[in-house]
């Protein structure tokens, strides 16, 4: 038991049970839907999840610092549109240009949020509620209600969503899905091992303590928002590639889906705990339900109701079960410390 406790953190149990839940859901859907276990199902779920996942990674970083970014849907819309207009005007541009445009524009928008939150001392929910409206309004004005259409885009961009990176056991892994996965892995490793990324946890767990020990709290918050904006920009490019037709409505309402994915994935809305992998699993859970309920012949309108219930269950189990587990772990740690220094009586 001690051995187990030393190697596993309560959060990992949480993620493992979510993974188990996804497997159970897939098994149930597999028995109810004919031809469920096909490459096509996998592709559908993967391409519907990839965009939410990339944005959810950024959202996780922001939420870890005890903030929230509600402007991500508008950032995705703006970056998708601007990158789309640029590449539509000159189809000969190298592939990297629209990606860079989207990411840089997203990062700049994230920086606006970050500066207002960190230096303006305006609560993040107010700032991003405001920029949610402002960015969308700017997009509508800038576009003049025109639309980016698929036939104005270069062929490579239109074909990108169908491009396979490799095929594994009959599953076609698309380039964009692999990209989303790579981002999840990179940020998971960074937030686990890099000092600079551990600061997100330190700040979110106890902002006063983080300030007292001299962490650059403002810069950390700014970094989180810039990364969230940049990742939303990348998601904007992916939206452009996936849908081709980009109206001024692109990405509207995405913020709530993303926050839902993070919450289902066990990211604590009050900061300080949660992982990038968890947020991805939350996204996968939602995507699996969404796509599978669509295939079931029962009323597709049940989707939202099921989703609401799922979020509630996730948060409730988090509060009730995880709290107990954490207390168990903490008690064991204390006992171990007490046992290692029983005679001297000094505080550890």
């Amino acid at each position: 038991m001690t051995w187990l406790r030393r190697r596993i953190r309560p959060e990992q149990i949480r993620e493992f049970s979510l993974l188990l839940l996804i497997v159970v859901a897939v098994l149930i859907f597999g028995s109810a839907i004919d031809n469920y276990y096909t490459s096509r199902t996998f592709n559908r779920i993967a391409s519907s999840v990839m965009i939410i996942t990339v944005v959810a990674v950024g959202q996780t970083l922001v939420v870890l610092t005890r903030n929230i970014d509600l402007s991500v849907g508008s950032i995705v819309g703006c970056t998708a549109y601007v990158a789309g207009v640029r590449i539509a005007a000159d189809n000969g541009l190298p592939a990297i240009v629209p990606v860079l445009i989207a990411v840089a524009l997203g990062a700049a928008m994230g920086a606006i949020n970050g500066v207002l939150v960190a230096w303006g001392r305006v609560p993040s929910i107010i700032v991003t509620l405001g920029t949610l409206a402002i960015f969308r309004g700017l997009l509508v004005d800038y576009s003049g209600a025109r639309t980016v259409t698929t036939d104005s885009l270069p062929p490579w961009l239109v074909d990108l969503p169908r491009l396979d990176l490799f095929t594994l056991a009959g599953l076609h892994v698309k380039v964009m899905v692999a990209l989303a996965l790579a981002i999840v892995i990179a940020f998971q490793l960074a937030t686990s091992y890099l000092t600079f990324a551990r600061q997100f946890y330190a700040l979110g767990s106890n902002p006063d303590a983080a300030d007292l020990i001299g962490l650059p709290t403002r810069r950390i918050v700014l970094t989180a928002f810039v990364l969230s904006g940049a990742l939303s920009g990348l998601a904007g490019f992916m939206t452009l590639a996936r849908f081709g037709n980009i109206t001024v409505e692109a990405g509207r309402g995405l913020e709530l889906e993303v926050v839902a994915a993070a919450v289902v994935g066990g990211v604590n809305i009050f900061g300080g705990s949660g992982t990038v992998i968890g947020a991805m699993l939350g996204g996968v859970m939602i995507g699996t339900l969404e796509q599978s309920l669509l295939r079931l012949q029962i009323n597709e309108f049940w989707r939202d109701a099921v989703m609401g219930l799922l979020i509630l269950l996730a948060v409730a189990s988090d509060a009730v079960i995880l709290k107990r587990l954490r207390a168990l772990w903490a008690r064991a740690d204390l006992e171990m410390i007490a046992r290692s220094a029983p005679r001297t009586g000094e505080a550890p």
Binding site: V259, N299, V315
Partner: peptide, 29 residues
């Protein structure tokens, strides 16, 4: 969930936002 179980209202009512809208959709399609 908020008062008696002690869950954060942001999370509970986010679930409500999606869930109650779902009920509306089920009824009216």
């Amino acid at each position: 969930w908020i008062a008696y179980v002690g869950l954060p209202s942001l999370a509970v009512t986010l679930a409500g936002l999606i869930g109650y809208r779902g009920v509306a959709r089920i009824l009216v399609q």
